[in-house]
Design a binder for these strands. Structure first.
Lengths: 248, 248
DNA sequence: CTGAAAGCGCTTACAG
DNA sequence: CTGAAAGCGCTTACAG
């Protein structure tokens, strides 16, 4: 490549480094040669020396919720616009495996994003040791020291409770998601605490964010009780399952 | 690292290369030091020299079809099990952009998989020039020379037509997907050709794989015609849109 | 503005 | 079985 353009390796490098000082003439020569050869700087070599690999690890658990599909699209797009590319890992297991994190480490990702999956503290430590920032999406963990972005589920579910209360509902059911997720816990907490204040004890059915489970538990419930005034599901999938059980 | 284990760089490398000849003793020393230091071989450096980066590029177009979410999970899992990690790109645009392919090239992916997106022939050439195999999933293109895996949509839709015919349906509608996709074209072809043989002309409504469009066209259709005996949508989303239009 | 040299962390012949 | 050396394709001081 540098032969073709008749300049040094350094100059080639400068042409592809925004803000580096190169003469217009050298730039033209290099760009033209690059065009002819189909040359592109090797990201691996660059990453090796600069320690900036331009990659971000994204881990996501395999579930049916289409919401996360959308999320994946957003992350991918926004990251690309900022010059990052995503190294993607689907985790089948509940906790993100050491093996999967190892991939992130080996490729020197500049950060990792975890959505809808759990992290063992060992894994977090490992990442920290390598100075790789990690952020949790839509969940948090008091015991883990990492950034996280999530919504105020407690407040939101209080609002839902308040709405239902205002409608005059009294016989109310809450169907949980996976009980070890902060999202489900918070929604339950906000919901029930509001109602308790008003003297209402919501019935709690244990779900796990799947359609099937939710269908099943509401089915069982309505067999033995009268149809409640309202059911609040921990997420959309849960609500769908309950809805279909009621229809039947 | 090699200092800690008191061996040469070469030996360290051999320990992490399956099948290389290292003594048990050296292996133990290295593994132990690695454990203490949290050492992992740098995949970038390795990729740079071996030309095997262990990465596969996966491009997917941003659509609502949950089917592709599942597909993504499968690809990701299977690839990981074979030692590959996936470099993921969501494409918003119809055709996969040069820019996005450049990413794949810069990182020296060992192959690229394209699902639900179009490829310009320029991009294919570019990839070919770099000896990067590319495979299309669930679509094909006569003009492009690349591998592809897809189902026999023509035959499948013939079978659907034959089923409807056997049920005695005569007034039949087909709602297309995006007309420039092989999937939609083949489904239409198989479906209508079978029916034409039986003397039935199916009405064709042009959709684009979205729920909204499908809802709209069937709505318009039933305003001006009587309700058909059967509607065949080019995919699930299309069928859903039609279904809801009918319900109303 | 430009080039020669060193170095990023690995692998791979080559000797021993 | 093991180590020294060269090299993968880049970037980055250092001189000029």
């Amino acid at each position: 490549m540098q032969k073709k353009a008749n300049v040094s390796q350094s100059t080639v490098s400068r042409v592809f480094t925004p803000g580096a000082s190169v003469s217009e003439k050298a730039k033209r020569k290099v760009l033209q040669a690059a065009e002819e050869l189909g040359y592109r700087p090797n990201a691996l070599a660059r990453g090796l020396i600069t320690k900036k690999t331009g990659m971000v690890g994204l881990a996501m658990k395999d579930i049916q919720n289409p919401f996360y599909h959308e999320i994946l699209g957003m992350f991918s797009e926004k990251l690309r616009k900022r010059g990052y590319t995503v190294l993607f890992v689907y985790t089948e297991n509940e906790e993100i495996q050491q093996e999967e994190i190892n991939h992130f480490l080996e490729y020197n990702v500049e950060g990792v994003i975890v959505t809808d999956a759990l992290l063992s503290s060992k894994v977090v430590t490992r990442l920290h040791d390598n100075n790789i920032p990690i952020t949790l999406f839509n969940r948090y963990d008091k015991h883990l020291s990492c950034n996280s972005v999530y919504c105020d589920n407690i407040r939101a579910s209080k609002e839902i409770a308040s709405y239902l209360y205002a409608q005059g509902c009294e016989d109310i059911v809450f169907i949980t998601g996976k009980i070890n997720t902060s999202t489900s816990r918070d929604r339950q907490l906000g919901f029930t605490s509001y109602l308790k204040n008003k003297g209402i004890d919501a019935a709690i059915l244990e779900g796990d964010y799947t359609y099937e489970k939710s269908y099943h538990v509401t089915n069982e419930y309505i067999k033995n009780n009268r149809i409640p005034d309202a059911i609040f599901g921990a997420n959309d999938i849960t609500a769908l399952g309950a809805l279909d059980a009621l229809k039947k």
